[in-house]
């Protein structure tokens, strides 16, 4: 049982981080966090990047805790940890580079067609 649990820990870290970042993104756009300043960036981006980095740290910590060798019994948890770390890095790096709520501008802007 613990073999399965250890093997799934890495992907689980990705799943949790991915869900948290996606949920924060949606909530932040709906609540207008991208208009709130938090130092050099918006509160929105700070929250997203922060959660992403926490997920990366968790993935890295898991990877460092696992034994390096020992057949598939150790290899599958290790592969799982790599999967989680790489997936977290790869799927969430857009928090750094893409624009956060732009399409939602259509929702925020008070567009009015005169009668």
């Amino acid at each position: 049982m613990s073999f399965l649990a250890r093997s799934l820990a890495g992907p689980m870290i990705w799943a949790v981080t991915f869900s948290v970042v996606y949920a924060l993104h949606g909530a932040g756009c709906a609540l207008g966090w991208d208009g709130v300043s938090a130092g050099p960036v918006s509160l929105h981006r700070a929250a997203l990047v922060g959660s992403w980095i926490l997920g990366l740290i968790a993935g890295l910590a898991l990877l460092l805790r696992l034994p390096a060798s020992g057949g598939l019994h150790a290899g599958l948890p290790r592969a799982g940890a790599w999967t989680g770390l790489v997936a977290t890095l790869f799927t969430l790096f857009p928090v750094l580079v893409t624009s956060s709520c732009d399409t939602a501008r259509a929702l925020a802007v008070n567009f009015f067609i005169p009668v």
Partner: peptide, 17 residues
């Protein structure tokens, strides 16, 4: 459906991964 580009980017990256 009009989801902001960043959220699309997460799912785009996951889809290629």
């Amino acid at each position: 459906v009009g989801i902001p580009h960043m959220a699309l980017a997460f799912f785009s990256a996951a889809s290629v991964l």
